[in-house]
Design a protein around this nucleic acid. Structure first.
Length: 537
RNA sequence: GGUGCUAUCGUCUAGUGGCCUAGGACAACGGCCUCUCACGCCGUAAACCCCGGUUCGAGUCCGGGUAGCACUACCA
């Protein structure tokens, strides 16, 4: 009974990988790793009409970025070139990745498994569990209009055009004539079918509500999801099917298919995950919600070649993959304790299907930001500098002459250390540090109104004289110079310091004033005070 | 309409009959810190869907409502 754990993530290449799909992949991955099993990736491209070019590469690259590793099936190939590139550079590479297929249960694209499906469709046909049907889509459409709640099932199939009513000889003749047909699964009526779900327990439905599902369509010589899924999971020796709750209603059908094939004893265990819901209103989180609500619902930015749309991604928004993983892991799963921050290894160790929630989780983007904030704080200043340098360069470049100087990575790291606790994302670092790179050319009106007093020009002029003579530019020395002077003159610390800050920063914000003078240096500090005096007097 | 799943603060959730005057986190609000803006720290407000039943005792078990969601394709 001890079976090797083998799970699969089986997306359709119909567009960008939705964040809900990412979570499904993650839970599969955590489960596989925890049990020392295999994580497979299979592409379910049985709907030729919905195929979107680039989607497969996108899916694999997304999982790769997130650190969800594939053991078998299709996966992104780690090229030498990529590993040499810096993180920032590889972020920019949107071009196709290399794909490799590993494992001996392939092919791993369903469109390449046609021969296999033929065999199994025939098996069902021969055993009487399936039949040919010739009703055209138009005829079915008409039927649905004519009869409310029409369903192709035990009650109606004898009134339709199929091998049951026509006879097998006539059916074969039609097929030989090139007539389009489908193969339908014959569902026996009045039978209670029970599916055991690892998250929800036993779910029982009566077979009367099931219709005779289309298993195969001759039009494109491809099976539908239901058939391909069962055949592949069986052949690939899948032990656990972990998928979204939208599949729960068809799980009994899948159980029936396993029975019809005689595979009941090796049927995988099922676990249906709660859905990810829209943050506002009701319903399942959809691909459109992201741009409507102003946050990404995709791991990476996606350029859809089919409809020309561009969808924003977590990576391009400045998220760290660890933060996305952590955030997603907790949408539908939680430990007994109060722990909120988990590394991938901790998740692998602690994850369990019986602690997955049963109810849907509304997607709370604000909490996602908080997770990124946490992970950003854990990064070293040097790591962040690596990511921030290209942003600084492009910004300084765009401001041309106003740039004071190029700064070394060490200097940038030091600057980041002064402000990193106040940002959630690397790109936000710029608005906190821009004055370190570019001297203020204008002064914030609100700050001026509140902090630039009548006496400020005089204060600054006197302070300038004091600073000009100062040799030791350390924070401590400056503090020892200025504070006693303010006290002696009875100017008020707040009044003087805020005016000074406006001269250096251009607004009433930023880190501690002596940290700013330290980075700026004597010359630049004095220059900014003189400029301010000249401009705002 | 039918079938199924679900139901604790605004949100994610802890809670598996007494430890619950319901805990944590995000968000909100207030305070402290302070030369500014933040961060941080401290604190406040905030929930067991409703009605029955079982029990000495129910957020926790059962039944019925109600509500939300999913599915109901030659899509996955």
């Amino acid at each position: 009974m001890e079976r090797r754990v083998r799970v699969r993530f089986a997306p359709s290449p119909t567009g960008a990988l939705h964040i809900g799909g990412v979570r499904t992949a993650l839970y599969n991955y955590l489960f596989a790793r925890q049990h020392g099993g295999d994580m497979l990736l299979r592409i379910e491209d049985t709907d030729s009409t919905r195929f979107v070019p680039g989607a497969e590469e996108y899916i694999l690259e997304s999982l790769h970025w997130l650190g969800i590793e594939i053991d078998e099936g299709l996966r992104a190939k780690e090229s030498k070139e990529e590993s040499r590139k810096s993180k920032v550079e590889s972020r920019k590479s949107k071009e196709g990745i290399e794909i490799e297929a590993v494992g001996d249960h392939g092919p791993y694209r369903q469109s390449e498994r046609r021969e296999i499906y033929h065999t199994y469709v025939n098996q069902l046909l021969e055993s009487g569990h399936a039949y040919y049907a010739f009703d055209t889509p138009e005829e079915l459409e008409a039927k649905r209009k004519e009869i409310p709640n029409f369903q192709y099932d035990a009650r109606s199939r004898m009134g339709m055009t199929n091998s049951l009513t026509l006879g097998m000889d006539e059916a074969k003749r039609r097929i030989a004539n090139g007539e389009k047909y489908v193969v339908r699964f014959l569902v026996e009526p009045d039978e209670d079918v029970t599916v055991h779900d690892l998250i929800r327990g036993d779910v029982t439905i009566n077979s009367n509500i099931l219709d005779d599902k289309v298993l195969y369509k001759s039009a494109d010589d491809l099976p539908t999801y239901h058939l391909a899924n069962i055949v592949d999971d069986h052949l690939m020796e899948i032990s656990h099917v972990i998928r979204g709750e939208e599949w729960l209603p068809s799980a009994p059908l899948h159980v029936l298919l396993y029975r019809a094939f005689g595979w009941s004893d090796t049927m995988p265990a099922f676990a249906h995950l709660p859905l990810l819901l829209k943050p506002d209103g009701n319903g399942k989180l959809s691909k459109r919600d992201g741009d409507r609500l102003g946050f990404p619902v995709f791991p990476l930015e996606f350029h859809n070649e089919k409809d020309g749309t561009v969808s924003s991604g977590y990576r391009e928004s400045g998220y760290f993959p660890e933060a996305v993983i952590n955030f997603l892991a907790l949408l539908g799963w939680h430990t007994t304790g109060d722990q909120e921050l988990f590394t991938m290894d901790e998740l692998i160790a602690q994850f369990s299907l019986d602690r997955v929630s049963k109810s849907g989780a509304k997607f709370d983007y604000e909490k996602g930001k908080w997770f990124n904030h946490q992970y950003l704080q854990m990064k070293s200043n040097e790591e962040l500098a690596e990511l921030f340098m290209p942003i600084v360069e492009s910004k300084v470049e765009s401001q041309k002459s106003k740039a004071i100087s190029r700064r070394s990575k060490a200097e940038v790291a030091k600057i980041i250390g002064l402000v990193k606790d106040r940002v959630n994302f690397v790109p936000e670092l710029w608005e906190q540090t821009n004055f370190f790179f570019v001297a203020p050319s204008e002064y914030d009106e609100k700050s001026l109104a509140k902090r630039w007093k009548e006496d400020s020009p005089r204060h600054m002029t006197e302070m300038l004289a004091l600073l000009e003579q100062q040799e030791d530019w350390s924070a401590e020395a400056l503090d020892n110079l200025i504070m006693p002077w303010i006290a002696e003159k009875e100017y008020g610390v707040g009044v003087v310091m805020n005016a000074f800050r406006i001269c250096l920063v251009g607004a009433a914000r930023g880190p501690h004033i002596w940290a700013i003078t330290d980075v700026l240096g004597k010359e630049e500090t004095l220059r900014r005070v003189r400029t301010a005096l000249a401009k705002i007097g």
